Simulated scan of single mutants.
Amino acid sequence: MSFTVINTFTLKDPADAAAFERRFLSHVEWMRSQPGFQAHQAVRSADRPDVYVNLGWWERPEDFQKVLASATFQEHAEEFHLIVDVEADPSMGLVRTDGVAGEPGDALFVDFFTVSGDTEAFVGAYRAYAAAAAAVDGFVAADLATSLFARPGGFTAATRWRTAEAALTATQLPAYAAVAALADVRTVPASHVAGNRAEFAPAGA
C-alpha cells in the first residue's frame, strides 16, 4: 500500500486561519506536481477549528523524502512554522476502500485509534468494517494507515460520506463494534479544506 504522511497543524493564533489556508493551498498545488505524489485530503476539525489534519499518499517513502529535502519544501515549512505547530506521523496505508466513483462527499471524519493488543486482529476487523461501510448508502471512501514510529500501536482512519447520517449509520454496524472493542478511538468530525482523495482510485479498487 501507499506511504502515508499524516500531519496535524495547530494554529498558534486562531485568527491566522485564512493566512494558513492560503499558504497551504499554494503548497499542495506544488506537492501535487511532484513525482510519486498520489493524493491528499486536508480537513479542519469541527470541534477544534484551530486544528487541521492532512493525509498525503505517496507511491514510496523515497519519493516523499526527496521532496522533503528540496529547497522549496524547506521554504514552505519555514513559513508554516510561523503560523502553526506541526505534528508529523509517517505511516503506511493498510486499507483503502472506495464507493461509487464521482460521488461527492462533504461529511468527513478522522479516527485516531490506539491498539494495545493484537494489531493484526484490529486491521482485520477494520478491513471487515470498511467492506460493510461501503454498502451503506452515502459512503464515499475510507482509508486506514498504521503509524510507523510516532505513535506505537497507533492507527489513523479517514472516512468520507455524502451525509453525516450515513456515517452514523455505519458506526451502528456490528462490524464497527468489533473495531471499537479492539482499540481506544478519538473521532474528529471535520470539514473539507482541499484534496483529491475521492478521485484516488476507481470504485472497487
Rank of each mutant, 00 (worst) to 15 (best):
D118I: 03
M92N: 01
F112S: 06
A101R: 06
E87Y: 11
G117D: 13
V95W: 00
S116E: 10
I83E: 02
G105A: 01
F113P: 05
D85F: 01
G117A: 14
P90F: 03
F109H: 11
E103I: 10
I83N: 07
F113C: 05
G102Y: 10
E120L: 10
R96H: 01
G93N: 04
D89T: 15
V86G: 03
D106V: 13
L108K: 15
D89M: 10
D98N: 08
H81I: 09
D85E: 07
H81Y: 15
H81E: 10
P90R: 01
D89E: 10
L94R: 04
A107W: 09
T119Y: 08
D89F: 14
P104A: 01
D106W: 12
F113N: 02
E103H: 15
V100E: 07
D98H: 05
L94P: 08
V115S: 11
I83Q: 11
A88C: 05
F109Y: 10
G117H: 10
V95H: 01
A101N: 07
S91L: 09
M92Y: 07
T114G: 13
E103W: 15
S91N: 00
L82H: 14
F112W: 04
P104H: 07
D89R: 05
V95C: 00
E103R: 15
G102T: 06
V84N: 12
S116G: 02
D118N: 07
T114C: 11
F113M: 10
G117C: 02
G117S: 08
T119W: 13
G99K: 12
F113K: 02
E87V: 08
G93Q: 00
F113I: 14
H81T: 05
H81G: 06
A88K: 09
E120K: 11
T97G: 02
R96K: 08
D89N: 11
D118A: 09
F109T: 12
M92L: 07
D111A: 15
T114S: 15
G99C: 05
D106L: 05
R96T: 13
L82Q: 14
G102K: 12
H81W: 12
L82F: 04
D111M: 05
F113A: 07
S91R: 00
A101E: 12
F112Y: 08
P90D: 00
G93V: 11
D89A: 14
G117T: 04
T97N: 01
L108Y: 07
F113S: 04
V86S: 04
V84C: 08
A101D: 12
V100S: 13
L94M: 11
G102I: 00
T119I: 10
T119G: 13
A101L: 10
P104D: 04
V84E: 00
R96N: 06
